Each structure stands twice: as C-alpha cells, then as structure tokens.
Simulated scan of single mutants.
Amino acid sequence: MTSNWATFTAAEPDLAKTVEERFGQFTHHVLATLRKDGSPRTSGLEVQFLNGEFWLGMMPGSLKARDLLRDPRFSVQANPGAGTDMGGGDVRISGRALLVEDPALITSYTAATEVPDPNDFHLFRTELTEVTRTYVEDGKYLVLQVWKPGEALRRIRRT
C-alpha cells in the first residue's frame, strides 16, 4: 500500500509537521536508490513539499534519475547537519518515485519553485511506503516513530 504526502499529513499531522521542519533545516539531503546490480547508491538531493505531494527533482541523465527510472524504490534521509543537535530528530521518507510527464503538472511545479530550466530536469512524484523519525527523549530514551499507509503510527521507546 502507498500514500501521498497529503494522506500522510491528514493521518499524522504532528509527525508530518516535524518531518517538514526537519527537512527544512537544510537544502540538501541524502537520496538512496538502487543501482542496476541491486547495490545501493547514495546521492545529494533537494526535495519539495508542495500541493500535498513530496517531490524529487534532478538533472536528466543523472545516475540517480536513471536508477529511479529503472527501479522506483527510494529513501530520502534528512541532512543530519553538523554537531550533535538534531532538532526534530532524524527523519527518513521511503517509497516509490514516479516520473511526471504531464506538462501541466511540470508547469505548476516549476512556477512554484526555483527550477533554472523547466525543460531540463526530471520531476518525480512520490508514493510513500514509510515515514520514520528517530529522536532522543528526556536525554535517555531512544524513540522510533514509524508510519506506514493503512497502519497506525508505531512508537517504540528504548532505554
């Protein structure tokens, strides 16, 4: 089962807000894709939360774009930043990236973002399969929140 960002936000508004704020702390994040041989590839990436969707945009012909065109599975980890203070925790969004070819959607996206050349990039709309947040609570507990479409939010607390 998959979901878009709007569905996730409706199901878990507090977690969605925290995840967006965490991604908003930095411009560049880490995208994990699968290479042709099945091994992982990590790449830098900018993301957008726009119109109820979580968008991935990248240069045409880039290795990460080729990976997603071949196998749409991905995971994006928010930039952890420098030092040890990760306000909002460590967050990750996983799912499937689907190439957008509809000119109206591309135009809508480029009008709302700072894409240098709207004709020279791959735009992917995402279907979410998991959103995860890990953080420290009260300075001593490791807390893991895991959301999957159609399931209740799981909260695991470890000492």
Score class of each variant (00 low, 15 high):
Phe74Ser: 07
Ile156Glu: 11
Leu128Thr: 09
Pro118Gly: 15
Leu34Ile: 11
Pro118Phe: 10
Leu15Asn: 04
Arg155Gly: 04
Ala104Lys: 13
Arg35Thr: 04
Glu114Gly: 09
Ser39Leu: 10
Ala16Ser: 09
Phe49Tyr: 11
Ser3Cys: 08
Ala11Cys: 04
Gly150Ala: 08
Thr2Trp: 04
Ala78Gln: 07
Asp102Cys: 03
Ile93Val: 15
Met59Leu: 14
Gln145Lys: 14
Met1Glu: 09
Glu130Phe: 00
Ala152Thr: 10
Asn51Thr: 07
His29Thr: 14
Tyr141Ser: 11
Ile156Lys: 12
Pro103Met: 06
Pro40Gln: 08
Asp120Tyr: 13
Leu63Arg: 11
Ala16Ile: 05
Leu31Thr: 08
Val30Asp: 07
Val76Trp: 05
Met58Thr: 15
Leu34Thr: 14
Phe121Arg: 11
Gly24Asn: 06
Glu137Asp: 14
Asn79Val: 03
Pro118Ala: 15
Leu56Ser: 00
Glu137Thr: 01
Gly87Asn: 11
Ala104Tyr: 03
Val143Asn: 04
Lys36Ser: 12
Leu69Met: 14
Tyr141His: 14
Thr107Pro: 02
Val100Phe: 02
His28Gly: 09
Asp37Tyr: 06
Asp85Ile: 12
Ala104Met: 07
Arg96Tyr: 10
Ser94Lys: 13
Ala97Leu: 00
Thr126Ser: 10
Trp55Gly: 05
Met1Ile: 02
Glu114Ser: 12
Phe8Gly: 06
Ala97Pro: 06
Ser108Met: 04
Asn4Leu: 08
Leu45Ile: 15
Ile93Tyr: 08
